[in-house]
Design a protein around this nucleic acid. Structure first.
Lengths: 344, 344
DNA sequence: CCCGTCCAAGAAAGCGTTTTCTCAGATCAC
DNA sequence: GTGATCTGAGAAAACGCTTTCTTGGACGGG
């Protein structure tokens, strides 16, 4: 009959009894400590195999002071960008034997800090995607979250690598592309007002406007999802712009769908660009012109940075900046003659 | 000066010293035990607040025998279906204070069992999406994974709720729909050969063929992703079918994209249906006819089933079966006159 | 042959909590 | 006033593991 400890699961003590040794010896064998007599080691292994013993990770974590788990905080698991980061992170971490704990803040920015702290305490390190958190709050909690890697945010706190996508440059590239096609009236369908990456895009646009005073760039309120784009058709048409820079691919797709319903042709009547180059971007009709961000790779890099921190390795390149690559497809084309304001 | 325990983090002992009480009392206060003198409790709370003390979850887990974490094993985090399950699960679990640990098997079926066991030991319960695992293996490991909830699989092991989508019925509904539109030559672009849900679809098709002997249904080899669909254009055209039942929405979208590149019109020349109704399905051009699966809700239900198991509540409805809902959009239309085999 | 060295394995101490056990002091009834 | 009862808080055990400390025995050198 198999012995069972108080919790009902087989523990190290059961193996020790069965093999006729102390638990210390069992532990040594399980951890590949070679100071154990080969005969005894074999006996322990046999006992462990027979009982199907698997060390309890919680006990192990407590003794070792590490969990082999990292956390990631994302604002919205429904967003393909964060899904891709999660995927890259998860795969890279798995290769080093680490698991990933997810914490979805559901866009509730007030939750981000609490969630981050809670996730961090369960893990050996944290990847934080917290676009809505204020800089001040971020800087305040950052030290307590260490080891910490930031995505698309920077902070003055020390030893916190940042992986940021140069959204400002990307949106400038897209705008340049539209201008090259002859567009002179552009509109930016903005993201969530307090989003950090939206701020970066706005800065890029300011630089663009300074360099191209002859181009009219309208700012339209928006959001980050499909429905935002779909619902922005009226505002877009009212703006009179012929080239629309959508906050991201999702918004662009929603907008294209809405324009299509109104019988407008993309890019014949209006050119639309996205941002991110999510997997679906190349399969829309027309295929979406966008700025490609190597987002899965970013997730992978996040792990490498975090790993260096966890291992206390010296990191000579803390953080890095990713340049989006202009990906021209069919949703952008030559400008029609400038239109005046169109209604419904 | 703030005292620090051996690990460098503030522990219950630091609070105890600061408040001039034993750690037992601190623990009692932190856990809302009312047998503590209000004055002392206040002193403890003040000390805890001042030190920003937060209980170490690992120590807590060891003492309580629970981790407040559940695991989910998915074959591919890049697949929108599993993303949606994860999202639903994560949100529902979060509402009850549980976190989710993810384990991506990357379609390596041999990894699924090991990964599942490892994830399970770190958590209080497990949601398993393991479409490639054999029934025998599943039945063997299921007892050791309890509390366990299965997605799209069933097993003879007791107390393992299964949440299954009736893919067989869904594919029949889609086939019926195409026949109603006048199609007499159909083709099924199958999923991964060893996929459990693909097997369910095949059974459904057998039932359909038995009921509609006059309809010609071809079986084509396939897969589960975009590129599969895109690469299947030749096979689809060779089959001569006018109505294509794609394994899922991804495959359908890839196929539509490939057909579009060949200058073929959907649904004018060929009707295409998907399966799942992923968020993008309604934004493709043409919008995709598909069988809608309430997949996020399924993730949510998975948590409710798992929660019942964890709490050892009696569950009178262990598992449930989800009926896909036929979602007719623009990618399916009346059949053209039957075509003969077309090349290139 | 005896003492110092070394080694393998058991004993025990930690890791940070919760919870049971225990006991001093207070309260109360008689 | 005294013994029974109760209360609140500290001491200690428990959770399951790793690792340091300890010890008994084997071995080798003088």
């Amino acid at each position: 009959m198999v012995r069972r400890s108080a919790t009902g699961r087989i523990g190290i003590a059961d193996v020790a009894v069965k093999a006729g040794v102390s638990h210390a010896t069992v532990s040594r064998v399980m951890n590949g400590n070679f100071t154990v007599d080969p005969d005894i080691a074999a006996r322990v292994r046999a006992a462990a195999a027979e009982l199907k013993y698997q060390p309890n990770p919680v006990g192990r974590s407590l003794a070792l002071g590490k969990t082999d788990t990292i956390g990631i905080v994302v604002p919205d698991l429904a967003n393909p960008t964060f899904q891709a980061i999660l995927r890259g992170l998860s795969r890279a971490a798995a290769q080093d034997g680490y698991r990933v704990l997810i914490a979805d803040s559901f866009e509730v920015s007030s939750e981000e800090a609490i969630l981050a702290g809670e996730a961090r305490r369960r893990c050996d390190g944290l990847v934080l995607c917290a676009p809505r958190m204020t800089d001040a709050e971020l800087e305040e909690i950052a030290p307590s979250l260490n080891p910490l890697v930031l995505i698309n945010r920077t902070t003055a706190a020390p030893d916190v690598p940042s992986l940021v996508v140069d959204y400002g440059q990307g949106v400038q590239d897209l705008a340049e592309h539209l201008v090259d096609l002859g567009h002179t009236r552009l509109a930016f369908l903005a993201g969530p007002p307090r989003s950090a990456s939206n701020g970066m895009r706005l800065k890029g646009l300011e630089a663009f406007m300074a360099a191209h005073p002859q181009v009219d760039v309208r700012m339209l309120e928006g959001g980050s999802d499909f429905d935002t784009g779909h619902g922005a058709v009226d505002a877009v048409l009212e703006s009179g712009a012929t080239g629309i820079l959508a906050f991201n691919d999702l918004v662009a797709m929603g907008l294209m769908s809405g324009l299509h319903e109104r019988g407008l042709d993309v890019p014949g009547d209006i050119s639309v660009t996205g941002f991110d180059d999510i997997p679906f971007a190349k399969y829309t009709t027309p295929a979406l012109t966008t700025a490609a961000v190597p987002i899965t790779e970013l997730g992978e890099q996040a792990w490498h940075q975090l790993r260096a921190l966890i291992r206390k390795e010296h990191n000579d390149a803390p953080g890095s900046r990713y340049q989006p690559r202009l990906q021209v497809r069919a949703s952008s084309g030559p400008a029609k003659a400038p239109r005046s304001t169109v209604h419904g």
